[in-house]
Design a protein around this nucleic acid. Sequence first.
DNA 1: GAATAATCTCTACATTGTTCAGATATGGAG
DNA 2: CTCCATATCTGAACAATGTAGAGATTATTC
Lengths: 204, 204
Amino acid sequence: MAMPKVRETYHHGDLESALLDAATKMVGADGAEHLSLRAVAAEVGVSPSAAYHYYQEKDSLISCVGARLFEELADFQEQALLKVPGKGARAARARFRALGRAYFEWASMEPNFFRLIFGCYCSADEVEVEVLRDNSRAWRLLQTCLEDLYRTGGLIPALRPYAEILTWSAVHGATALIIEGHLPKDSFESLLDGLERSLGIGIK
Amino acid sequence: MAMPKVRETYHHGDLESALLDAATKMVGADGAEHLSLRAVAAEVGVSPSAAYHYYQEKDSLISCVGARLFEELADFQEQALLKVPGKGARAARARFRALGRAYFEWASMEPNFFRLIFGCYCSADEVEVEVLRDNSRAWRLLQTCLEDLYRTGGLIPALRPYAEILTWSAVHGATALIIEGHLPKDSFESLLDGLERSLGIGIK
DNA sequence: GAATAATCTCTACATTGTTCAGATATGGAG
DNA sequence: CTCCATATCTGAACAATGTAGAGATTATTC
């Protein structure tokens, strides 16, 4: 564990994001369920109460970490997509795989991040479900990817209406099950194979 | 909150399972992350330390709750299967849907149960993954269901090798996403439709 | 440079998981 | 029936936690 920082100025300068950074790091290392507000404050070199000027309670801080991680996941998927340019069916298929792999790889790198954003700390209210989904960047990435596949003929037309929910559910489910040890790691590639074949993706 | 019990005998009689029962109830109501050992002991009418004769630590108790819930989920799915007898393709297809629905319904009834058994408290070691999966009752239910479908011709043969992982991943993923509010509730039926169509289940 | 606001510290409190010495009851041997 | 070993439970204690509030310290604005 890193030595708690000692600062010279009374005012920290950017305590809010310093707390967020420290909390993010510690969530990755130990899981959100073991995060201690006091430990975060100590790591930043500040008294426990100081945190309450920026976060109403410990759970608010955790939620903010979650919000940031949602963006990071989307970033990671976007980066993966950028490595697969092109407009044809072949490229569309490669993007589909890249998208799924990125999801799984991101989760595998820091399982505690994945657990946080899809666990109880970050669950959405019933009201905002529809809004949330349509505005989520990751969801839109998948949508355009499937639309590309559809246009280039790399997706069975009759399955188009189900492609999004099927893909997202399967990729998310496999990732979650593998991370918690209910499926072996190598089953993710099998899942992708199965998804492609069952959706008729990339049939030559 | 129920009044803490007061018992007359010094020895409780069946403290181990009483603690398990109380813990299970409280996990359902408040989530495993908010479970308090002291509260469980108080509910049973016993001092906090008494629990340590049966569970090494708080997390052991939680894990035991999880183990019981795994069985309950399998029971629930078995019950759902019993309502759909028959040997033909039609029955096999109905069982397939019943299995998926049971999974989702069980999780919807008590989301905190689902969160517990598929969260960090119940994750399996890497070593026991293979053993665990093959010995899991729920997994075998799905296996025989898909085998029935395959034999009766209600499943595209080329997809047979992928059917299990695809189905489990998709059903689990959709359930998890819906429970945490990332997908609307009614999308589960769409998912089942999509799964059936993409696997070629029940094509007349 | 003085008043006001923002930022941070200190102390305090209730609650938690956990430990351990000791109290209490139970079951079996004589 | 009695006594003793053993299983079972209690009580007090400890360190750590989240959080509240009063006060100290620095920044900002006029």
